[in-house]
Design a protein around this nucleic acid. Structure first.
Lengths: 150, 150
DNA sequence: TATTGTTATACTCTATAACTATA
DNA sequence: TATAGTTATAGAGTATAACAATA
């Protein structure tokens, strides 16, 4: 079965098999992050808002891949925890402008750092070329799964 | 930034960035599976039991990476939906023997097929060599993240 | 009327703590 | 006493349906 490495079937199979396993490690690591534990969607939401200051709720929901009500609830939690500031947009009062607080930025930074630190360790056992393959593979996956194919 | 492809940092960064995106697509696809929608943990649990007939609850929990209570609840749902048979072990009456029903096997098969079918499509746009890279990268990831490092 | 967001409701996921049954 | 599982409880994630406010 090693010979169909280039087949779409094999890609599909490996994705279904491997991605959930990696995901679980990432989730557990993020959740360990001291008192300020973050779920994966919370982490991703903070990341997005940090990169897109003043984003609207719809924009965030769309990017993260949640429905609007789900994102509304999620952001609500982030506001309560003082990670996010939510104000109505000046011109269009239906929209919300989302930005991170200082505390939100700091939490995001340290959560990202801790998690990456941990993941990094896992990769030190590999050869440089193996790591290169991992990075290339993931970049291709990002491209494949970022397209809004619905 | 393209030049540090072989660095552990870059692996960590890509994992944190890309894996959640792919995961979401997989989850949504699994959940679309007709009336018999499965969550990712449910799907993985059915897969494991199918491959390991008569597995105990602890074994399943351990493999999937859930706590025993969480797995107990999850399996409870699968039993209710007639996907799984749960009986006490003959010799050690503390243990549970888990097996799939015919219906469970069939559901698993068709959920896997539909999801893989969908994922496959996404990969048809790639070159054979790109797909090879994806497969190789994922196999390395599996190896890295299967080790019980805690 | 169309768009942006929130609220209500309901399940699943998940953990920790406390418990029961068996060995 | 140690092991295998369950039950109780609680918070987060998520969806759909119904609603409110603004354009």
């Amino acid at each position: 079965m090693q010979r169909l490495q280039g087949a779409p079937e094999e890609c599909a199979h490996e994705v279904l098999d491997v991605v959930p396993v990696v995901m679980r490690v990432v989730r557990n690591k993020l959740r360990e992050h001291g008192a300020q534990l973050l779920s994966v969607p919370q982490f991703r939401t903070l990341s997005f808002i940090s990169r897109n200051n003043g984003a609207s709720l719809s924009e965030v929901a769309n990017h993260i891949g949640l429905t609007l009500p789900s994102m509304s609830t999620l952001v609500d939690g982030l506001v309560t925890r003082n990670f996010v500031i939510r104000r109505t947009h000046e011109d269009d009062r239906r929209r919300m402008d989302l930005t991170l607080t200082e505390h939100g930025e700091a939490t995001l930074r340290s959560a990202r750092k801790e998690t990456q630190e941990y993941l990094k360790q896992r990769f030190t056992g590999l050869s440089e070329s193996e790591r290169g393959t991992v990075v290339k593979g993931l970049r291709i996956l990002r491209q494949v799964f970022s397209e809004r194919t619905a």
